[in-house]
């Protein structure tokens, strides 16, 4: 038993890299990788929903958020009021973390935070100005649009190629350069 758990550790670490990403909802795998932090957060701020916001109404003061993955995914409607902190971080199409408490059988948001993407080890972030400098100077690098193909088709950044997460295995060999030292820059639809 102990041995099989040890074998699983690298898997958890890999999986935690795989599932984090802009706009990505949290899966149970991430929680499994960091149970200690999770428990601590929950203790200090109450229960939490993590996932993609699919609707927000300022008039009805409600946010719809999808939590869970695949068949277990469900939409939850959370209310907010003037005491809710960080309401601006809940925007349709973006990943959020909503701390809540239950009032009259309904979840009320207390604190809303953007769900920030975590960078895999050895990967650094690039900002707009630096990226623009590279593009304007016609620097030799590969710009990769990681969003779904339909969104790439509608509009993409100059010179970008399309490799969605699911297409990586199929496309990487032919689309990526043979030279492993060449600069690759990935982007998608933003973190918050």
């Amino acid at each position: 038993m102990k041995r099989s758990m040890i074998k699983l550790i690298p898997f958890f670490i890999m999986a935690s890299f795989l599932v984090t990403g802009c706009n990505h909802d949290t899966s149970s795998t991430v929680k499994a990788a960091k149970p200690a932090i999770e428990a601590k957060t929950q203790k200090s701020k109450g229960p939490v929903y993590k996932g993609k916001v699919v609707g927000k109404s300022n008039k009805a003061k409600s946010i719809s958020i999808v939590v869970g993955k695949g068949k277990k995914a469900k939409t939850i409607m959370v209310k907010f009021d003037k005491n809710t902190k960080g309401v601006e971080h809940a925007a349709k199409g973006h990943a959020s973390i909503i701390f809540y408490d239950m009032r009259d059988g309904q979840p009320w948001a207390t604190v809303i935070k953007p769900k920030l993407a975590k960078l895999p080890k050895g990967v650094s972030e690039i900002k707009t100005a630096d990226l623009k400098t590279l593009i304007d100077a016609k620097t030799d690098f590969v710009l990769i649009d990681a969003r779904p193909g339909k969104r790439y088709a509608a509009s993409h950044m100059p010179g970008a190629i399309s490799i969605g997460t699911k297409a990586y295995k199929k496309k990487a060999a032919s689309a990526l350069p043979k030279d492993k030292d060449k600069l690759l820059i990935m982007y998608c639809g933003g973190p918050t």
Partner: peptide
């Protein structure tokens, strides 16, 4: 998602990956 692809490329041996 961009960070996921970055992780996969890194795993494939690309040394210079940014997001």
């Amino acid at each position: 998602m961009s960070t996921k692809i970055a992780g996969l490329a890194k795993k494939d041996g690309y040394k210079n990956v940014k997001v």
